[in-house]
């Protein structure tokens, strides 16, 4: 079970969270101006990353806030968690999750 650091509540077990799909897919500001292909791209096309994946999680059984996670889909290591609207690099090292597995 993943240990996920909610940026609002701290580290909590995976069962407190709901997965929210790929992160950083912004809803187009004016959907009606998009052609069908561009709209379908927004609606359906997602990465299937082998490696570091940016994804949304929601602390549904906690503070109920959405936030972003960068997770390695191979090792399940969570590299960083950050609030909506934040850049992952802006998270100070000390606030990053204690790893569930850096390779020794």
């Amino acid at each position: 079970m993943l240990l996920i650091k909610c940026p609002f509540c701290g580290p909590r077990p995976e069962i407190e969270f709901a997965y929210g799909g790929q992160a950083h897919i912004e809803r187009p500001k004016d959907p009606m101006s998009l052609d069908d292909e561009a709209w379908a791209e927004y609606l359906y096309i997602r990465n299937n990353t082998r490696g570091v994946h940016s994804e949304r999680w929601r602390h549904i059984n906690g503070c109920a806030r959405f936030f972003n996670v960068r997770r390695d889909t191979i090792s399940d290591e969570i590299l960083v968690t950050y609030k909506v609207g934040e850049a992952p690099d802006a998270v100070p090292e000390k606030d990053r999750p204690t790893k569930g597995g850096a390779v020794r």
Partner: peptide, 13 residues
């Protein structure tokens, strides 16, 4: 509620 919260928190904050 989840759908509403999703849009409210992540698209239209």
């Amino acid at each position: 509620l989840a759908l509403m919260e999703d849009y409210l928190q992540t698209e239209w904050s």
